[in-house]
């Protein structure tokens, strides 16, 4: 028997705690595949966020630690500086990274820490039941914006990848999505590049993943794929935002 598409070694057999149709599971698998393909399972250290992915250490079959809400980039900085031969990545939601941890990500990026950041943008606070995040779209209804987000009151959807892309310390930032099989493959390629950069000591790399939260958006799993295409991508366009290896 030849395995064509099979369960990666870097994933434990534990069942995910995510809602049906949630994008977190797809990104967990992509990370596991990339770590398998680089054969770095024994020297990878992940930092799990506070948010729906808080139990990521139950799912990945390599070392994972947990950080306080928003602080994974600070923890990753410490681990990578003390153990520079390890491959260190953070996995963070948009509430975690763009709101409560805005300072930590900004300064880790500006320092050009040689870490990899996987940033899950689902335009909402998933775990706490669907409150507005900095990334929530104008007009998007959440429990804390029941009439839809208004710019006058809550500002604009925060394009944090574009903002971070202005910093000289940043090596690579790309935005991808997991709403169809073609985009999933592109997302894997970007994640692979973000790990390759770290292995080659290139510095700070971040991949923003537009990811489904059907429950938070109050749509079906299938509608959530379309929601990304029609609502999220026009505000958060896909593609490379910064790549130093191309500009020099």
């Amino acid at each position: 028997m030849k395995k064509l598409f099979s369960y990666p070694d870097s994933l434990k057999k534990a069942r995910f705690s995510y809602c049906p149709g949630c994008g977190h599971g797809i990104v967990h698998r992509l990370l596991a595949e990339v770590i398998d393909e680089f054969k770095i399972r024994e020297k990878t250290i992940g930092i799990a966020p506070v948010g729906c992915a808080v139990f990521a250490y139950h799912y990945w079959n390599f070392d994972v630690t947990e950080a306080a809400h928003g602080r994974p980039p600070a923890v990753a900085t410490g681990i990578k500086r003390v153990l520079p031969d390890r491959i260190v990545f953070t996995y963070q939601g948009d509430g975690d990274l763009a709101s409560i941890g805005a300072a930590e990500i900004l300064h880790a990026a500006n320092r050009g820490e040689n870490i990899t950041v996987i940033f899950i943008n689902n335009a909402i606070y998933g775990m706490t039941g669907g409150q507005m995040a900095p990334t929530t779209l104008i007009g998007q209804k959440t429990w804390t914006s029941p009439g839809g987000r208004k710019a006058e009151l809550s500002g604009y959807p925060m394009k944090i990848s574009e903002a971070l892309g202005q910093l000289d310390g940043v090596h690579y930032i790309e935005r991808v999505a997991v709403n169809n099989p073609e985009n999933v493959l592109k997302a894997k390629k970007a994640i692979k590049k973000a790990f390759k950069n770290q292995i080659a000591n290139k510095g700070f790399s971040l991949v923003e993943v537009l990811s489904m939260c059907p429950v938070g958006w109050a749509v079906t799993s299938v509608e959530a794929l379309r929601w990304i295409e029609e609502k999220l991508i026009p505000v958060y366009p896909l593609g490379v935002i910064r790549d130093k290896s191309k500009s020099t």
Binding site: M1, G25, V184
Partner: peptide, 15 residues
């Protein structure tokens, strides 16, 4: 199907 499955519940093999 494998690429989209959020639960990694699908495997495709060749016999």
């Amino acid at each position: 199907c494998y690429q989209m499955c959020p639960e990694v519940a699908i495997e495709i093999n060749k016999e």
